[in-house]
Design a protein around this nucleic acid. Structure first.
Length: 301
DNA sequence: CGGCAGGCGGTTA
DNA sequence: TAACCGCCTGCC
């Protein structure tokens, strides 16, 4: 990964509060809205100036993008001089050539061409595996505002606090806490989690945390499937966002809608859809899914 | 207000 | 192994 770093001109400033600001020039195929609003994460919020503030991997940061210049401002949590190289470069997937991915996916596929046009700045974040597991167990049979609410309540109830020095930072509805560790969650009870209002997902979360404490984090799709509350859809999301399994193709109601409306599949034909992705998108299925997901949601909004 | 949401687990045939 | 049902909650 260090080699790909050379293609960017990176500058760093230290702020009074000890945190850092990085400016990265020459970033292509990047749009913060496309990235943070395409269903892969739930803890980033758009600011009035168009930048995004979020919590990930034990950090709070603000990210802005304009004129091929990416700005990352560290606000709280882990912040070292090398944090761009050590964390953000990989988190934002800056080593990947999205132009090449888009060209490949577009070839002979007019639906994909349109989808990519609408979400040209999408990137698949490299998220912390455990955070991804928790997030997507919460997401099942749930709507986005409630997923976000549950996530914040869970962080505040059981997560480690992140100290924010700058009082001007607007976290909105977000709580400056990390998501709880597997150990912390494993020791909790359904009654203890009641204030989070997870519904039946509370038990899934606790049982999965206990399994992780006992057997370690999952490493394969089979490991994922063995976790409580993780079925095909959630496993594909975690595989894609947390395990770098780019052949994953999470089929949710929106993707189902695209595959029906634009590719002609029967509504319930998940098997056919998955087979189509495997054959036509292959190792780029995850990227294809993100473009399609963003596209159908934008057109239905 | 009811239907439904970025599904899953459990049961039944 | 496929189809079906109930599930917490609260948004739309």
């Amino acid at each position: 990964m260090t080699k790909e770093l050379d293609k960017y001109d990176v500058k760093r400033k230290k702020k009074k509060d000890g945190n850092y600001v990085w400016t990265i020039q020459g970033v292509k195929d990047f749009d913060a809205k496309h990235i943070f609003d395409c269903g892969q994460c739930f803890r980033w919020r758009e600011q009035p100036d168009g930048s995004w503030t979020g919590i990930a991997g034990g950090r709070i940061a603000n990210i802005g993008f304009d004129n091929n210049i990416l700005t990352i401002e560290s606000l709280a949590g882990i912040s070292t001089p090398k944090d761009f190289q050590d964390y953000w470069f990989d988190y934002l997937d800056l080593g990947r050539d999205y132009g090449a991915i888009k060209r490949k996916l577009s070839r002979g596929d007019d639906v994909m061409k349109s989808a990519i046009k609408g979400g040209q700045g999408i990137r698949i974040l490299n998220q912390d595996l455990w955070e991804t597991i928790v997030s997507f167990i919460i997401s099942q049979n749930n709507n986005i505002p409630r997923i976000k609410g549950c996530t914040e309540r869970l962080a505040k109830l059981a997560g480690e606090p992140l100290v924010v020095n700058d009082r001007d930072i607007d976290l909105g509805d977000m709580a400056p806490y990390n998501l709880p560790t597997p150990e912390k969650l494993a020791a909790m009870t359904v009654e203890g989690l009641a204030p989070v209002r997870l519904g039946y997902r509370a038990r899934y979360l606790i049982e999965t945390a206990q399994a992780v404490v006992e057997k370690g984090l999952p490493e394969s799709m089979d490991d994922l499937g063995a976790l409580c509350g993780v079925g095909p859809k959630v496993a594909n999301c975690i595989g894609l966002f947390g395990l770098h399994k780019y052949n994953s193709f999470p089929i949710d109601v929106w993707v189902k809608r695209v595959m029906h409306d634009l590719y002609g599949f029967d509504e319930g034909d998940n098997k056919g859809m998955a087979a189509y992705a495997e054959e036509h998108f292959g190792e780029l299925s995850g990227f294809a899914q993100q473009y399609l997901f963003y596209y159908i949601r934008e057109t239905n909004r």
